[in-house]
Amino acid sequence: MKLTLRIWRQAGPDTPGRMAEYQVDGIEPDMSFLEMLDVLNGRLILDGQEPVAFDHDCREGICGSCGVVINGRAHGPEHTTTCQLHMRAFHDGDVIDVEPWRAKAFPIIKDLVVDRSAFDRIVRSGGYVTAPTGSAPDANAVPVPKADADVAFDNATCIGCGACVAACPNGSATLFTSAKVTHLNLLPQGAPERERRVLDMIETMDAEDFGGCTNSGECVAACPQGIPLASIATLNREFLRANRSAKR
């Protein structure tokens, strides 16, 4: 198929950017969206132009590196990551707008590449269990009810892609943060740091210039891992609980 791409080009963090238009043809339905960009880049390079920069690594939907806004939707029309989106989701002659995640907390580095280190700082501030190597009891010493383990797992599958922030009208990282808090606070292993964790992580989240949550639900619609709104309720519950608790 033949496509018209309008892609955000920005040379560097402080240089102004613009939407640039390109034509690509010979696109196969079996190509992934990133392979389509590979084709475009191959052509740009041979034309002596700079290829479009975009983050990617595993191309299997698990590392969370990739992610662009396609026609106004984070990761595009299907419920998956950009690398797992295939061109059969588009039609010959389509015009496709490709933009980077847009959020104050995710400054653009180049073209479609943004700096998501704010996520790492949120995790750093409490998204862990303090269990120094060697100190662990036998793995089966503490049974975990399957139901809790399953909810914890569902939330632990967050790949840190940032689509939730990109989709949220407020550029809020609440879904990401709620996934990590839900994962760890529901497990017995996470219980001792339960209050500190949620307070510290929300504090960092706010300090990183993310917006607040107005329960719009756009994040959930964009999340490739299906992290549910229930996790946000859990985050809020944990926050209020921690504020009541003496252990803060």
């Binding site: 309008r6 955000w8 939407m19 806004v69 933009e99 847009r102 959020a103 407020n170 550029g171 809020s172």
Partner: peptide
């Protein structure tokens, strides 16, 4: 939190 809006 979203200084630049999406073009699309």
């Amino acid at each position: 939190a979203r200084p630049v809006r999406y073009a699309h």
